[in-house]
C-alpha cells in the first residue's frame, strides 16, 4: 500500500531529476571551461537558456505534421519516466517495481525513435542525415547495452534495478573483472547515448559531423526547450544509472528508512553525480571528436567488452 511518505519520496525524486539536470549540464560545461583555462558560463546558464527558449514563440516549418509538434513532449516524457524509475537517493520507491533495466533501455529507445522520426518529418537534408546517423549509432549501442544488462542480471539474478541495488549493497559481488568490463562498456554506451564528445559534439551547430543537433535543427521556442531539457535529464539519468549499478553506496534502502538515511542518500547521490560529471568533463576535454565512421568501431569495442564480461562470468562460475 503506497502511503503518503512513498508518494512524497517518489514525487521528490521526480522533481529533483528535472530540477537538477540543467545544473548538471552547467557543471560539465564549467569543468570543461576550467580545463581550457576559461572562466566559462555560470552554473545557472542552462536554466536561463531554458527560460529564454520557453518565453519565445515556437516556429514550425510549413509542412510540419503533428509528429513535429508532439515529438518534443514524447521525448521529454519518456526520458522523465526513465529517470523516475532509476533509483537515485533511495531504492524501493513506489515506481521501482517497474524499474526493469530492459524497460529503461526501452524508454530511452522510445525517446530516440520519436526524435529520429521528428528529424525526418519536415524533410530537410540535415534532419534526415541526423536521424540516419542516430539510428546507426543506436543499432550499435543497444546490443552493447543489452550485453551489459545480461551480465548484471546474471550476477544479481534479476534485471530489476531495485534488486540489483540490494544485491550490490549486500556485498554479493566484490571485485569482479567482468563487472569492471561492464562498467567500461556502459560508460562508452552512455557517452554515445548522450551525444558527448568522441561520438558527437553537444556544443556545435556548424559541423557536418553533428548527429543530435542535426535532428533538432528545425525546432525553436518551447519545443527546443523540451528537447534540451530532455537531453539534460537523460544525461542525469545515465549518470544515476551508472551510480546505482556500480556505486550504490550510501543509498537509502527505502522511503520508510527515516529522514536521516534519506538525507545521507541524497548527499551521496549528489556527490556521486558531481564526481561522475567531473570525470565526464575531463574526459571530454582530453579527447578529440571522432570521425563519424570511426564511431562504429568505438561502439563495437563496447559490444566486445560486454560480450567478454558475459563470457568471463561463465568462466568464473563454470558452465
Amino acid at each position: 500500500m503506497a502511503g503518503l511518505i512513498d508518494i512524497f519520496a517518489q514525487g521528490l525524486e521526480m522533481l529533483l531529476v528535472v530540477g537538477l539536470a540543467p545544473l548538471l549540464v552547467g557543471w560539465v560545461r564549467k569543468v570543461k571551461a576550467h580545463v581550457f583555462r576559461r572562466r566559462g558560463p555560470s552554473l545557472l546558464q542552462p536554466y536561463r537558456d531554458l527560460l529564454r527558449l520557453f518565453s519565445k514563440d515556437a516556429l514550425l516549418a510549413e509542412n510540419a505534421s503533428w509528429i513535429s509538434r508532439t515529438a518534443p513532449y514524447v521525448v521529454f516524457a519518456a526520458v522523465w519516466v526513465a529517470a523516475a524509475l532509476i533509483p537515485t537517493f533511495a531504492a524501493g520507491l513506489v515506481f521501482h517495481w517497474a524499474a526493469d533495466l530492459i524497460a529503461i533501455v526501452g524508454l530511452f529507445g522510445l525517446a530516440r525513435f520519436a526524435l529520429a522520426v521528428a528529424g525526418m518529418d519536415v524533410g530537410t537534408s540535415f534532419g534526415g542525415i541526423g536521424s540516419s546517423r542516430e539510428m546507426l549509432l543506436a543499432s550499435l549501442a543497444e546490443p552493447a547495452m543489452l550485453m551489459v544488462v545480461f551480465t548484471i542480471s546474471l550476477f544479481a539474478g534479476s534485471s530489476q534495478l531495485a534488486s540489483i541495488v540490494d544485491f550490490v549493497l549486500a556485498g554479493g559481488i566484490g571485485i569482479r573483472p567482468s563487472l569492471g568490463l561492464a562498467l567500461v562498456a556502459v560508460a562508452i554506451v552512455a557517452i554515445a547515448e548522450n551525444a558527448r564528445i568522441p561520438v558527437d559534439n553537444p556544443a556545435t551547430h556548424l559541423e557536418l559531423t553533428m548527429v543530435h543537433e542535426a535532428m533538432v535543427f528545425e525546432y525553436s521556442g518551447r519545443h527546443l526547450a523540451m528537447i534540451e531539457a530532455a537531453a539534460a535529464v537523460k544525461l542525469l539519468a545515465w549518470l544515476s544509472l551508472i551510480a546505482a549499478i556500480f556505486l550504490p553506496f550510501g543509498m537509502a534502502p527505502g522511503p520508510h528508512s527515516g529522514f536521516g538515511a534519506m538525507a545521507v542518500g541524497l548527499l551521496a547521490w549528489l556527490a556521486k553525480l558531481a564526481v561522475l560529471a567531473t570525470l565526464l568533463g575531463l574526459f571530454e576535454a582530453s579527447i578529440a571528436k571522432m570521425r563519424v565512421f570511426r564511431v562504429p568501431e568505438f561502439l563495437g569495442g563496447a559490444f566486445a567488452l560486454g560480450v567478454l564480461a558475459t563470457v568471463l562470468l561463465f568462466v568464473s562460475r563454470g558452465l
Partner: peptide, 25 residues
C-alpha cells in the same frame, strides 16, 4: 577490417573458454 577482426576475436575467446572449461573440471 577492424570490426570483422574483433568479431573473430570474440569467437576465438568463446572457443577457448568452451574448450578449457569442460577439460579442467
Amino acid at each position: 577490417g577492424v570490426g570483422t577482426t574483433m568479431l573473430f576475436g570474440l569467437a576465438v575467446t568463446m572457443l577457448a573458454v568452451l574448450v578449457v572449461l569442460p577439460v579442467t573440471e
